[in-house]
């Protein structure tokens, strides 16, 4: 083989993709040819640089739990419950640590895993994040969003923009929660999304927090409305958001 035949095969050879016959032919040639030897050294150097300089990072820690949660909702079968309560022990340990941390740090926190409303709200939130599902009316102007909502549900929730506090209004969506159509107001905090589900409720309820599949969920009732807030935002930031919302709806 000559240089012109060798060159196109050199990379495949170094990638270990060539058959034995071609590999041997290339080795023989490169041994004897200084030009091809230089090309080979360059290739070796480049590969070493790439491998040393681009370490293969692992997926982010919460991602497995999040994907599992989404899959479980997708499967949505009673038959999967067995699996749901017997997850990988490492996740169980991690979840226990998280629950413990929140129980200690936030007395109001209650694990509400069994609450179907919370599970449903988280499922709605996840679905809303799929491309094109976030908002039916995309507007940062509450004077556009509020009438849109009022036309579609038989109540009129307070719609406020909290841009000044770092939570701009993104729009609203009609969603289904607790066996009825509800308004979902969508806010942003950097790249994170916050869904606020609002529906009429006769009773007043204190704020309760729960955690499901890496999402935080806050529920409360005030002023004749029940609020369910879902986001993957950090707990302190989401608390900042609920304070804004509660202040505006008082």
């Amino acid at each position: 083989m000559n240089c012109d035949e060798i060159r196109p095969l050199l990379e495949a050879y170094l990638d270990g993709e060539l058959d034995l016959v071609h590999s041997l032919a290339i080795e023989q040639h490169v041994e004897a040819c200084p030009v091809c030897q230089r090309a080979r050294k360059q290739q070796d150097a480049l590969r070493a640089v790439i491998r040393a300089g681009l370490p293969r990072g692992a997926a982010l820690p919460g991602l497995t739990a999040r994907v599992r949660g989404a899959l479980r909702r997708e499967a949505g079968q009673a038959g999967e419950r067995k699996h749901l309560i017997m997850p990988d022990w490492r996740w169980l340990a991690a979840a226990a640590a998280v629950i413990l941390a929140f129980t200690v740090a936030v007395p109001a926190f209650r694990p509400l895993r069994s609450n179907p409303l919370v599970a449903e709200a988280v499922a709605n939130h996840v679905r809303s994040l799929l491309p094109g599902h976030l908002t039916d009316v995309a507007s940062t102007d509450r004077h556009t969003v509020k009438p849109w909502v009022a036309q579609r549900v038989d109540y009129s929730p307070t719609v406020q923009d909290f841009s000044a506090a770092g939570f701009p209004l993104m729009g609203a969506r009609l969603d289904y929660l607790g066996h009825r159509n509800v308004a979902a107001l969508v806010y942003a905090c950097r790249e994170h999304r916050i869904n606020v589900f609002v529906a009429p409720s006769p009773s007043e309820e204190a704020e309760r927090w729960s955690d499901l599949d890496g999402f935080h969920v806050a529920t409360w009732s005030q002023g004749g409305m029940k609020y369910v807030v879902v986001s993957d935002l950090s707990m302190p930031e989401l608390r900042g958001f609920t304070r804004q919302l509660r202040g505006a709806t008082d």
């Binding site: 997926a59 982010l60 991602l63 994907v67 996840v126």
Partner: peptide, 28 residues
């Protein structure tokens, strides 16, 4: 293969947050 999936997504969309969303969507 979650790490591989995330790695590819991360380099294709060039952003961690969007990569996670795409990985979840791909698994579904």
């Amino acid at each position: 293969h979650l790490d591989s999936a995330y790695q590819l997504a991360r380099w294709l969309v060039r952003n961690e947050h969007d990569a996670q969303d795409q990985v979840q969507e791909a698994y579904l």
